[in-house]
Design a protein around this nucleic acid. Structure first.
Length: 317
DNA sequence: ACCGCACCCTGAGCGC
DNA sequence: TGCGCTCAGGGTGCGG
């Protein structure tokens, strides 16, 4: 290999792009996916795929690994877009690669030195200053190598709730077709139009990707707190003005998390995995029993639609 | 059309 | 030390 050849990939990508791993499972919602897109794009766009390695066929692969290898090899990545919580890479032949991180998906550049990529038992056996390169394991389902021989791009997902699918040129996908307006773009009027006919809980509506795309459990709870609305409130009882405020607050927390997400993705990762900027800003999510930061009342947790919802009984009526 | 819920998966945390 | 149990959740699909 030529040693004097200038690398075309950004050297600064030797950091983890995994965000928001707390004691609770971290969830890639719109901000995490957007930050991932921004961080991983320089390591994908413009590069030519030289090889594809995968784990055996499974639930994870909407397109069989053998087909992925055949279709992706030799292709140049043209762009990387985000649609709700999906990432969509466009290739030079017009085909597209659809990625979803699910709950535990991690998309990162080979050489990322992050304790977040290790199990808790593996982390515990390390000295604090150790930051070993992650080695592919049985959960590292997709590995893309490039003709420039630079760092590979890896997709790891322990729980396989993530997905990868290849779309032929012009091929549509029902997952994408069903998505509503992006959560950062939807207007209060649009949301109110959807809410006024729904009798389900407002929290359920916020999580409905066909109504608005990108909101997950954390930001739904946070936005409802900021708006002073209980997650159990029936959607059709929210007046237009309140929908406006709810959407404004949703967009505020999403943007704020994108902004701080950049800083939480630093070279340094605390051994206990407790870093991550947005964690400290949480008002209600995963704070059951703790005092409300506004009024001191204990935060309550209820289950709505098979998902936990957190709220302050006093601030949210 | 809408709504609630079971299911896919596996690591973490817990009690014993 | 280690086992078995429960919980977590995004998205899909099904039955009511």
């Amino acid at each position: 290999m030529d040693t004097d050849e200038q690398p075309k990939w950004p050297a600064a990508q030797s950091v983890s792009i995994c965000v928001h791993l707390w004691q609770k499972p971290y969830m890639p919602e719109l901000p995490e996916v957007e930050v991932t897109r921004r961080k991983i794009a320089p390591a994908l766009v413009g590069r030519v795929i030289a090889g594809v390695r995968t784990t055996p066929p499974s639930y994870f692969f909407l397109t069989p690994p053998s087909v992925l290898k055949r279709r992706l090899t030799g292709r140049t990545v043209i762009s990387l877009a985000r649609l709700g919580k999906y990432l969509l890479a466009t290739l030079d032949d017009g085909s597209r690669l659809l990625l979803h991180l699910g709950m535990t998906g991690q998309l990162f550049v080979q050489g990322s030195a992050s304790l977040r990529l290790l199990s808790s038992t593996a982390r515990a056996s390390l000295k604090p200053e150790q930051q070993p390169d992650f080695k592919p394991d049985r959960h590292t389902h997709l590995r893309l190598a490039f003709t420039d021989r630079g760092p590979e791009v890896w997709f790891r997902d322990a729980r396989k709730f993530g997905k990868v699918k290849w779309l032929a040129p012009g091929e549509s996908d029902e997952r994408l077709d069903k998505l509503g307006p992006d959560a950062l773009e939807i207007t209060g009027a649009e949301f109110h139009a959807a809410a006024r006919t729904r009798r389900s809980a407002i929290k359920t509506l916020l999580l409905d990707q066909s109504v608005l795309a990108g909101v997950g459990n954390i930001y739904a709870d946070e936005a409802l707190f900021l708006t002073g609305v209980r997650p159990t409130r029936k959607a059709n009882t929210l007046p237009r003005a309140q929908c406006d405020r709810l959407i404004a607050n949703t967009q505020r927390v999403l943007k704020r998390s994108i902004d701080t997400g950049g800083s939480s993705i630093s070279d340094y990762v605390a051994p206990d995995g407790a870093d991550g900027a947005y964690q400290d800003e949480r008002m209600v999510y995963a704070r059951e029993g703790e005092p409300c930061k506004v009024c001191g009342t204990r935060i309550k947790r209820v289950v709505i639609g098979q998902r936990s919802a957190h709220y302050c009984p006093r601030c949210q009526r």
